[in-house]
């Protein structure tokens, strides 16, 4: 890796557009919201104002957000997302692996076929999922022919996890594809030649070599899962609330933007802590550099 001072022109050319875009169109807007998270609704004529705020009044919103009520919901969101991410990884890996080892002619098509369902609007897709899995849906109709069911497959935590896996699949497949594709197949051959079984080769060679892709995929799936609200809303039952739903409500029905902002930042801090931990562990093992 070069020191940036060795080639300043190239460094700045590469760094400038992204940094500018992120600073102006992301960090700056987010700053408004960050200020908001330390603010409160203003009092006007003895009443709490609907649209005005007193800025930078303190950390009341953060205190409210560590109430056990919200911590329970955050914890639940974490394990639902973790389960969904794991399931996603387990299903996406063979797909990405298969695509990479398919013939050149089929590769682009297979890749396209994975992404294609996701060009249909999330909401429409979720409704289609409901049509397939509801009590009188096609799965139950098919099972009915076999003399089974009908089963209640929707409106529970299982449905939410399944829905999340379905929704975020390409976020796992694409990074996995990108790393497995560049996997040096001679390592696999060497491993096999030296007498390791396919299974051992996979666990000891393939998985470690594709770890960057796995980690990227896990991040890309886990984090959006954590903030999702539409899927739990539509597929979850009476118990399915996730932190994304609470946040969404603060910005809409409850009209409590400061609290919504504080909850969002809490979620971000948690994710950041996890990412830092990962970076720290990665550095210690001094293995892959993502």
């Amino acid at each position: 890796m070069d020191n940036w001072k060795d080639n300043k022109n190239v460094f700045w050319t590469l760094a400038a557009p992204g940094t500018f875009w992120l600073l102006v169109f992301f960090i700056l807007p987010l700053g408004f919201l960050f200020v908001m998270s330390f603010s409160d609704k203003a009092m006007v004529n003895g009443e709490v104002s609907i649209t005005d705020y007193d800025y930078l009044t303190g950390i009341t919103n953060y205190i409210r957000s560590v109430d056990p009520l919200y911590l329970t919901i955050i914890w639940k969101s974490i394990w639902v997302s973790a389960l969904a991410t794991l399931l996603c990884l387990v299903t996406a890996y063979p797909i990405a692996f298969g695509i990479c080892f398919a013939s050149e002619r089929w590769k682009p098509l297979l890749l396209l076929l994975v992404v294609l369902p996701f060009w249909i609007n999330l909401l429409i897709r979720t409704y289609a999922l409901i049509a397939v899995f509801r009590t009188q849906g096609y799965v139950n109709l098919t099972l009915g022919v076999l003399g089974l069911g009908p089963y209640d497959m929707l409106y529970n935590n299982f449905a939410v996890i399944f829905g999340l896996v379905y929704v975020y699949m390409p976020f796992m497949v694409l990074p996995l594809y990108a790393t497995i594709e560049r996997l040096d197949k001679s390592y696999l051959e060497a491993s096999l030649d030296l007498g390791a079984s396919q299974y051992t080769t996979f666990l000891k060679v393939t998985v470690p070599l594709t770890m960057p892709g796995i980690i990227t995929g896990v991040i890309l799936v886990f984090i959006p899962c954590l903030g999702s609200f539409l899927t739990p809303d539509l597929l979850g039952g009476a118990n399915a609330i996730m932190i994304g739903n609470v946040i969404e409500r603060q910005f809409k029905a409850a009209n409590d933007w400061p609290f919504g902002a504080a909850l969002s930042f809490m979620l971000m801090y948690a994710t950041f802590a996890a990412l830092m931990l990962r970076a720290f562990l990665a550095k210690r093992s001094a293995g892959v550099d993502v």
Partner: peptide, 14 residues
């Protein structure tokens, strides 16, 4: 009013 909205929202979350 905003306070009552907040109270109801918390009940709903619970």
């Amino acid at each position: 009013g905003e306070e009552a909205t907040k109270v109801r929202d918390e009940i709903w979350t619970r």
